[in-house]
Structures are given as structure tokens and as C-alpha cells.
Amino acid sequence: MDNPYLPYPVRIEEIITETEDKNLKTFKFVFLNPEDEEKFSYIPGQFAELSVPGKGEIPIGIASSPTEKGFVSFTVNKVGLVTTHLHNMKVGEIMGIRGPLGNWYPWEEMEGKNVVIIGGGFAFTTLRSSIVYMLHPDNRPKFEDIIVVYGARSPGMLLYKDELAAWEQRDDIQMHITVDATDDPDWKYNVGFVPTITEQKITSSENAIAIVCGPPIMIKFTQPVLEKLGFPPERIILSLEMRMKCGIGMCGRCNIGDQYVCKDGPVFSLAQLKKMPPEY
């Protein structure tokens, strides 16, 4: 019998400190058994349980794209027991990954459409996966305009800085990077909260679908902006976070009404969420 709780063993290949407060690190993992990489076949928007033996497991969005081969990566915020321990682990150490878990962004529905990506803070991980996926030469023709609004508290708190700079140079993706505030005289991008920049930069909801990931306060103030632009709730897509253990809809803690965020989510449209109890 397949055991859905058994993690694949992986080795930490690389650790990148992403932010100036050093609280966010990206971990690149390589599967110890190459056949496990095949089995870990994922779609942007999904997550996995990172398993640190002796400490426990944590559900984290997959930050790499399935178009990137040979590794899988996750960006982890240091908050609790497992993440703190993980932040102290070193390249070469062995741990586990269990997944992929949950659903994904509605890729079929997004084909032929303008894709508006709105991200805030460290919730940019599965959005990074999605951007890398869409920019792959095999996939780019499937989508119309790709427009990204991404904000953080300060320039030093942005994730994936080198990639953001590279995307800024491309003409097949429109980047609107912003920070809440900065005293850096050389800052050449936007200053302002994500909802404000969204209001300034996004001009139309025509043939467009919006994916929004960020802290609750950002989502709360971005939602009316999108509604004003004419995005119907079916075309506003959100990814939720919840405390999880099993990741497969059995342990009972991550439900919102009759939906389990781990199995039926984490991706929900605003239309779906409006029918569910507001308990998240």
C-alpha cells in the first residue's frame, strides 16, 4: 500500500538568504533517489510538506517551476520550531519532502488570457513558480500579457532580487515592483502599497484573470481595487494558508466549512470563498 505520509528523502543542495532581515531563506533540494523526482510531478500553485526528522513537518508552497529540472525549491520564513531548525541546517544535510499536495492555479482557464499577478511580502513563492513557468518558451505563447505587481516593506525584503531585475529587462512581462517605503536614493521602482500600485498600473480586467497572494491586509485592500476594475469574483484567484499536519484532508484542522485547504485548496477563487464560512 502506498503510504501518503512517507516523505521522499532529499539533500539540501543550496541555501540562499533572500532578505535583509535573514528571516527568509530559499532551500534547493535534490532527491536522493532520482525516480522520486519523477513521482514528485507538480504544477505551479501546489505545496509540499517539508519534513525535518525529529522536529516535524511544515506545509510550504513550491517556489521552483516544473520547467526547472534536477531540483525543487522552497522559500521558508523563520517562525516556529521546524522553520527555525531548518534555517540552521546546512548544505548537504538530509531531510524529506512529501507531496506535491493541494490544487494549483487554474492554468487551463488562464490560457489565452491576460494574467495579472499580485503579490506581497513572502507570499511570492508560488507566484515565482508561476512566472518562471509562463516565461518558459514552450508556455509563453499560451498566455497574453503577463502583468506583475509585487511589493515588500523595503527593497531588502523583496524575494528573488536577481530574477526580478532580469524580468524587468524583458519585453514579454510587465513588472511593477514596489516597496512600502525606502530611503534609498537609487531605488528606481515604485513606492507605495500594493493596492495603490495595482490601482495605478492595472488598467483593465478585459480578458484577464488575477492571482493574488499576500498578507491578509493586502488581500483585503486589493480586492475592492480589482472589483472596481471589473474583475468578477470567478476571475480573482487566491491561495490560502492554514495550519496543516497531514496535507491530505484527513487530520481535520485546515477546514473552511466542508473544504480542506490542504486538499481542496490552497487555491480558491473569490467566488468560491464567498460561499464558504469566513473562518480563515
Binding site: Y5, P53, G54, K55, G56, E57, K245, C246, M250, C251, G252, R253
Partner: peptide
């Protein structure tokens, strides 16, 4: 409903699930 916890004694560890 259940919880999953790791327990380690010296260098031997168990992953355990408990009713929650």
C-alpha cells in the same frame, strides 16, 4: 482528527500521530 509529532530519544526518533 489527529496531530503528528516527532519524538527523539538520544539519536533514535519516531514520528507519531496522536488523537487531537
Amino acid at each position: 482528527c489527529f496531530d503528528i509529532q516527532d519524538e527523539v530519544y538520544q539519536k533514535i526518533g519516531d514520528r507519531i500521530r496522536n488523537w487531537d
